[in-house]
């Protein structure tokens, strides 16, 4: 590997940019390909598949090894609530960088969330730092707070957007956000009611169902458990 390529990869990782290192196994010179340039690479098909799944591997036919450098996934949780108390440590264990945001002083206690990247402030772009490798979960039940994050998540093309609330709550959300000019396509990206249908009965169980759905989205898995009617208004 060339030192200049190593520097490019390390810079991309710092900037949270998706890239691949292609290394010919005969020892000839390799190259770094950024996701944005993958379509014009000779191995475009291979790269498209590997960027989508995030998995590194050997390509026997091309005689190369493809190392995918995917930024570590982030989870932004809006709402320092009971579900969050279980969700945050589990998400960290799975490998997510977790940020918790809740402007409501009564909920937002350092005692409960001091171990995490926690902000007792209104969600804004600088705090959330959203990108395509980030999942956003809104749990406050307060549209004034949740909607800000949901709109920002759509704009940033987050890989997962989930909102706590019943079907009825979500129907109202659709009315409200559609009236504010949000397209049907963007609305359909919100997972609501949130989480896989595992019959979760307590806040920690809801956390499991939410995290499972986030992981499924991250890995591009089909989630049969989430019955279509759960997503509908």
């Amino acid at each position: 590997m060339k030192l200049s390529d190593l520097k490019a990869v390390n810079a991309a990782r710092t900037e949270r940019r998706l890239c691949a290192v292609i290394t010919p196994l005969d020892g000839s010179e390799g190259r770094v390909v950024f996701a944005a340039d993958a379509a014009s690479d000779p191995l475009a098909g291979v790269l498209a598949r590997r960027f989508a799944s995030g998995t590194s591997g050997r390509e026997a036919e091309a005689g190369v090894f493809v190392r995918i450098h995917r930024p570590s996934p982030r989870l932004v949780v809006i709402g320092a609530v009971h579900v969050t108390q279980a969700l945050a440590p589990m998400a960290e264990a799975v490998g997510f960088e977790v940020t918790i945001i809740d402007p409501r002083g009564a909920f937002a206690t350092e005692e409960r969330f001091g171990a995490f990247d926690f902000h007792a402030e209104w969600p804004d772009d600088a705090l959330m730092k959203l990108d395509a490798e980030t999942a956003v979960v809104t749990l406050t039940h307060d549209p004034k707070i949740d909607d800000i994050a949901l709109l920002a998540a759509m704009k940033a093309d987050c890989f997962y957007i989930g909102a706590l609330g019943s079907r009825k709550t979500h129907a109202k959300r659709i009315d409200r956000m559609t009236a504010a000019g949000v397209s049907e396509a963007d609305m359909s990206r919100i997972h609501a009611p949130i989480g896989l249908a595992i019959g979760a009965a307590s806040p920690p169980e809801i956390a499991v169902s939410v995290l499972a759905e986030v992981i499924a989205a991250l890995r591009g898995a089909e989630t049969k458990a989430a019955a279509p009617e759960r997503r509908a208004a």
Binding site: M1, K2, L3, L6, L25, D26, G27, S28, G30
Partner: peptide
Amino acid sequence: IRIFVEPLAAGEGAAA
């Protein structure tokens, strides 16, 4: 397991 070991090449030339 298969492990590829390569030099980190400071110059312009090929890795090997």
